[in-house]
């Protein structure tokens, strides 16, 4: 099993009030699954995504990723896990504005400590795989929204992570470009990648194989997607 969540809770201290974002999540995700996490705002889906992406640690419960216990690692170990195991795709792309596409894709490899020549080849390959072989030296502001998101996907792929974690990846795109992005995810899934998608749009979730619906910090339903394949 790739991901095993056992009774995950998360509390935030807001002033003197404790807010419970997750009240006990139990969920397994296997290799090469394609999962959508859905829920209204405030349902805890962002918190869950942060925990899955090792940006945050749960208040209690256990998170096993590739049978490694993540739940109580320190910041630097988490950074290494994020570097090797997780590829993030954000709604707002989050590319570095002053770096070109190739440099953006190289970024995770820098923190992995790879020498420049090796980084370049790997980043080129990743960009080529999302169809941007001819846009490598363009800066983000010289690219369309769809192209930017493809750069971000290439960056997520470049380290061969265990999970690709996409947070509303089509949220800032028109529907046609959104569809293109979803096609890329489908291709990645078919190539054997594990993809977790956070979204609040049904038709996006329909692209996946499995939909996990959250409400008030709990899993409301966990079901196979009917529209998918």
């Amino acid at each position: 099993m790739l991901i095993q969540l056992e009774n995950i809770t998360k509390n935030y201290q807001v002033g003197t009030v404790t807010v419970t974002a997750l009240q006990g999540i139990r969920m397994d995700i296997d290799h090469n699954e394609y999962v959508a996490i859905m829920g209204p705002s405030g349902s805890g889906k962002s918190t869950l995504m942060n925990i899955l992406g090792c940006l945050d640690t749960p208040s209690s419960g256990s998170y096993l990723l590739n049978n490694n216990r993540i739940s109580d690692l320190d910041d630097d170990r988490l950074a290494e896990i994020r570097n090797r195991e997780i590829g993030f795709v954000f709604q707002t792309f989050n590319l570095l504005p002053r770096a070109n596409a190739l440099q953006n894709v190289e970024l995770p490899l820098i923190y992995r400590g790879l020498p420049a020549a090796k980084r370049r080849t790997q980043a080129r390959d990743a960009l080529a795989s999302v169809g941007l072989a001819d846009r490598m030296d363009h800066k983000p502001n010289e690219l369309s929204g769809g192209q930017r998101q493809r750069v971000a996907i290439a960056r997520a792929l470049v380290n061969n992570p265990s999970i690709i974690l996409a947070d509303e990846p089509t949220g800032n795109l028109d529907s046609r470009t959104g569809d293109e992005i979803m096609e890329i995810f489908e291709g990645l899934h078919e190539a054997g990648n594990t993809i977790i998608l956070v979204t609040h749009e049904e038709y996006i979730a329909e692209h996946t194989d499995r939909i996990v619906r959250l409400r008030d910090g709990l899993i409301e339903r966990d079901e196979a997607a009917n529209g998918g394949h």
């Binding site: 950074a79 989050n94 923190y111």
Partner: peptide, 16 residues
Amino acid sequence: TREIGVRKAVGARRGD
């Protein structure tokens, strides 16, 4: 700040 966030998300440690 955002740039730092991105760097951290893709694996930059505190030391980096």
